[in-house]
Nucleic acid binder design. Structure first.
Length: 335
DNA sequence: CACATTTGACCTGT
DNA sequence: ACAGGTCAAATGTG
């Protein structure tokens, strides 16, 4: 099996090379006779490549060597020595966001679906904790280079609460696949189940918005690590100045915002689609707002993801008066 | 068959 | 030495 370090370096190289190639292509399409659509597509691809490359550098938790190196993917001699290197170059063990507590009031099954496909790669008993901690990474880590990861651990004090930590951001396309297109291979059955499940959950979702989804965030000093994959479509001055924050944090219930990266709600799905505004780095949130304790009905926590038509959301451009807190909006949306 | 999960071993940082 | 994070072979699942 290939080693992480090699895979990351190879992916990084790949993304940068792609970015350069797309840039060259874009240059060829700069003359007026070329279609704007083509230029836009190329631009998107370039940005996408940069995003992935940056994710690899910043979010992976690994230091990337500067010296050029031929990919050793799959080569036999890479195994023993490279494995050592891999760990040597690992940065400190942090890099996880602060924990987000997700309450599952009646179910002990734990938070299930946050709209992303996770693959469990490990579990550890943690000293002083009654419950083991599960380690997950994005299913599309190897296919799409998505470096998002999360930890889930059941709370000692309240077993109905799950403490979730996130790392990295999603650069994969899984949500749209899950919603719109069938997979070419593999997961047919599971994904079909998920989609059907989500349709069933639409009604629950409505209820849950009215009931109030609640999430508790704790120890939020390190705010830039919170909501690592949370993105919004706009990058206006208003956003930078925190006006959007006000509209998001107050007009939308905080619960709607907080667990977006996490275990439960629709927002995480839409956020993924909505582009480039990095919530975690642009939103400054007051202590009181973030430490507010909230809890959720199990029906909500377990999987209130709904496959809304994100393009419609984009058209709304997140007007400040956008009626997120108005149940009618969702009623209309879900019909 | 192709995935995902489980779990003991291994590695790193403290 | 220990704890936390990850790997990878074995096993499970649809």
């Amino acid at each position: 099996m290939e080693k992480t370090m090699d895979w990351e370096q190879s992916t990084l190289l790949n993304e940068l090379t792609q970015g350069r190639d797309f840039t060259n292509m874009l240059r060829k399409h700069l003359h007026p006779s070329s279609s704007p659509e083509t230029r836009q597509v190329l631009l998107d691809k370039i940005l996408c490549s940069y995003d992935k490359a940056l994710s690899l550098l910043n979010c992976s938790g690994y230091m990337v060597e500067t010296k050029p190196r031929v990919s050793t993917l799959g080569s036999p001699e890479s195994d023993a020595s490279d494995k050592k290197d891999m760990f040597k170059k690992r940065k400190t063990s942090s890099g996880w966001s602060e924990q987000i507590r997700v309450c599952s009031a009646t179910s002990l099954e734990g938070p299930l679906d946050d709209g992303y496909c996770w693959r469990k790669y490990g579990q550890k008993d943690i000293l002083g904790s009654n419950f083991p901690r599960g380690y997950y990474r994005c299913t599309h880590r190897f296919s799409q280079g998505c470096l998002a990861g999360k930890q889930i651990q059941r709370s000692d004090e309240d077993p109905t609460i799950f403490e979730v930590k996130y790392r990295g951001r999603h650069t994969c396309n899984q949500v749209s696949h899950l919603v719109a297109t069938p997979k070419e291979k593999g997961n047919h059955y599971r994904e079909k189940q998920q989609v059907e499940e989500k349709q069933k959950q639409s009604e629950e979702l409505l209820l849950s918005f009215e009931t109030g989804l609640k999430v508790n965030t704790e120890d939020l000093d390190n705010r830039e690590n919170i909501f690592p994959s949370f993105s919004f479509p706009i990058e206006s001055e208003e956003v930078q100045n925190g006006l959007l924050r006000n509209s998001l944090m107050k007009n939308i219930s905080p619960a709607f915002v907080s667990p977006a990266t996490s275990e439960s709600n629709y927002f995480s799905v839409s956020a993924f689609h909505m582009g480039s505004f990095d919530f975690s780095q642009n939103v400054q949130t007051s202590e009181s707002e973030l430490t507010e304790i909230i809890s959720a009905p199990a029906s909500v926590t377990n999987s209130p993801i709904v496959d809304l038509d994100i393009s419609s959301l984009e058209k709304l451009e997140f007007d400040q008066s956008f009626p997120f807190d108005n149940p009618e909006f969702f009623t209309n949306f879900l019909q």
